[in-house]
């Protein structure tokens, strides 16, 4: 059961900077276990991260790693992947980095169905800048920039990426680590745009302001509000209230961007002969 993880971590960079009880360390650890389970060649694996708490993950992971600008990781990753499709390219982003400033690149990456594995660590807040609300902060909640309660609605990120064309969509939680590992491994092995929302907990900047002061409480909340997709469809609308489905939500085998482009190159070079 134990996964080889030490060689994929930059040991000299630990302890990491994430706050006590933050879910990002758990998610990053289980992403590494997913990489191990998927048996990826670490020399051919690139991790691209944006700016924010999630953005620091690439620095701890022992691969070719790139810490880019806020919201643009998917655009950088698109160039890395298209230039060398043999690379396994993983993007680590957050709910602010990926769904606010980075939203346009998220939907276009999905639309292209380019073979990237995008892990969006959703802790429902801008943690790095100490607690502003994000597109995933629940309506009504408190944050430093919603002192009177958040009036914004949230994205349904799974629905958004599905409508945009992603061919693998899953959601996991920091609570259910085994499910996370399975989801990461399957997403990594899927050819096409794999979008994985990983629900994380931010006790310091989100929980503290919204009646959930400890990581343990927040993890229990994740446990109680997540329902495996296999059971989800049997629930009534009433039962679904306040809950969300987890697991592989959608999977489709669809033409992948870099493969289609290689066909153009092959045919053009054939003609040129």
């Amino acid at each position: 059961m134990g996964y080889k993880i030490d060689e994929y971590l930059r040991q000299d960079k630990l302890p990491h900077i994430w706050c006590p009880g933050c879910g990002h360390g758990t998610i990053m650890g289980n992403l590494i276990r997913g990489i191990d389970k998927a048996n990826l060649d670490p020399d051919k694996t690139v991790v691209v991260s944006g700016i924010g708490c999630s953005g620091r993950a690439s620095g701890y992971m022992n691969f070719d790693t790139l810490h880019t600008t806020h919201g643009r990781a998917i655009a950088f990753a698109t160039g890395i992947k298209l230039a060398n499709p043999k690379l396994n390219v993983i993007v680590i982003t957050g709910d602010g980095d990926g769904a606010a400033i980075g939203g346009n690149h998220l939907i276009h990456g999905a639309r292209r169905n380019i073979d990237l594995t995008v892990v969006l660590m959703n802790n429902h807040i801008y943690g790095m800048t100490s607690g502003q609300f994000s597109p995933m902060t629940p309506t009504g909640d408190n944050a430093t920039t919603t002192p009177y309660g958040n009036i914004d609605q949230n994205f349904d990120l799974a629905g958004l990426t599905k409508a945009s064309g992603a061919s693998f969509i899953a959601r996991g939680t920091a609570y259910n680590t085994r499910q996370l590992i399975e989801i990461f491994a399957e997403g990594l092995l899927h050819t096409g745009f794999s979008f994985i929302e990983a629900i994380s907990q931010c006790p310091v900047n989100y929980g503290r302001r919204n009646g959930l002061s400890s990581a343990v409480d927040m993890l229990k909340c994740q446990r109680d509000s997540s329902v495996n997709i296999r059971k989800w469809d049997s629930l009534s609308e009433e039962e679904k209230k306040g809950k969300f489905p987890t697991g592989v939500l959608y999977k489709e085998d669809k033409r992948e961007y870099t493969e289609m482009y290689q066909e153009i190159i092959d045919s053009v070079q054939e003609e040129a002969k």
Binding site: V48, D64, L66, T68, T69, R72, A75, F76, A77, T78, G79, I80, K81, L82, A83, N84, L87, N104, H105, H108, Y261, I265
Partner: peptide, 23 residues
Amino acid sequence: KFIQMEDELASMACVIGASLSGL
């Protein structure tokens, strides 16, 4: 390889990524 991105800043990012891959 050629790609038309969703905007110019994505194009700039994409070009940097491709150069990191060696092109």
